[in-house]
Design a protein around this nucleic acid. Sequence first.
DNA 1: GTTTTATATCGTAATATTGCGATAAATAAT
DNA 2: ATTATTTATCGCAATATTACGATATAAAAC
Lengths: 109, 109
Amino acid sequence: MGITKSDLFSKKQNEIAAMAKAIGHPARIAILQYLAKTNTCICGDLVEELGLAQATISQHLKELKTAGLIQGSIEGASVCYCIHPGNWKKFREQFAGFFSDVNIQGGCC
Amino acid sequence: MGITKSDLFSKKQNEIAAMAKAIGHPARIAILQYLAKTNTCICGDLVEELGLAQATISQHLKELKTAGLIQGSIEGASVCYCIHPGNWKKFREQFAGFFSDVNIQGGCC
DNA sequence: GTTTTATATCGTAATATTGCGATAAATAAT
DNA sequence: ATTATTTATCGCAATATTACGATATAAAAC
């Protein structure tokens, strides 16, 4: 149906999946890498940088903001977007945790 | 349109996004955690474990297999699925790399 | 005050994902 | 041989995502 049965899974499982989904698009990866590089950014740069329409970039920025990965503050007529340091760390730890919780012993097959 | 403009992004950006997408669903997180715990697994267990229909589980397993995160070998009438150790490591490293490539200095706003 | 600049939001189209019943295919059990 | 058991695949419906033009909004520049 296209609707995820979130209630079947634990809070943590839904959380990890949501985090993964947030970075599950190359445009959002590119945005994050660009924000990381410049450390101060306005959306206009991204439109040139990525080659997507302004509306599309804005939409991706919104998703990253909702996920908590970036934050934006109004700077005159522009908006200054940057990475949210605290949540970035949370993401890193969440993924690191997920991938190391699993101790793989050779596999079964 | 629902179609991602992959050609606008680097190979690596597309790769990271695809990896994230693969684990961007709680059912797939749950499957991976379960596989990691049991280390030997058949799909039947997952149907009971997760509460999703067999067809749905099979579909998620296929996606995980396509992403390279799991592997399956035919074991009589069943299929033994398990984590693909090498690729698991690759995923871990890819995410760790992505999150630490970014050195956050306080943020800009 | 009008015009430009920067960003967000709305509406819409195209495509993707999620989920499941039904059915197929292949082995195991009887 | 026939009947379970196990998994994959097909077909479909519901919903989500991606993308963009058009438009709104708000500050800056003139």
